[in-house]
Amino acid sequence: MKKRNLLLAALVLASLPAAPALAGWKLVPHAKPITVAKGTLTVTPDADWNRWSVRPIKKGEVWTLDGTGLNEVYFVSGLIVGETLYRDADKKNRPLPTLTKGMALTDIPEFFESSNRIALNTSLFTVTGVEPAKMGERDAVKFNYEYAVEGSPLKRRGTAIGSLSGGVLYLISYSAPATHFYEQNRAKAEAIMASAHY
């Protein structure tokens, strides 16, 4: 009986949401090159930012100015075939798309969009513009996007730049509420993107 209870309790425990450790933030000083997301992607911000100790994936990193719901820069450095842009929250029922072999630069916006539709559980995600760009010396693609999440009247906007080298993905995105916050900090985010190289 005791064994059965313990087994039952263990099952309940396993089904409860995990409580991660308290988040923490470190200062990213402006005008100093910094390597991000535990990879080779390097940027030089023109303003001070805050770097989150919580990583959505091992090769990811998050920066913010006022809170991630208000302005967020997400870096991905060195994503390889078979890996996802975010952590799978429900791999069995709603798996995130994985980076596939032979993916071209022009496939990055679609990969980003489909990843976010699942990660944010929203059908309201649209890529609004795609153009060629450079990430340092390498070819890249830059695109804008708009989205909203269920239960919130807030419209959000973003801009991102992605590059592929030997099938390995490097990406920086900036997301913020469309009202006030997006425009307020867009130049700071674009300065990060313009300084990026790997």
Partner: peptide
Amino acid sequence: MIRNLLRAVSGAIVA
């Protein structure tokens, strides 16, 4: 973008 994750973390901090 990491909003859902943030919500989970905020909830978890309280927890």
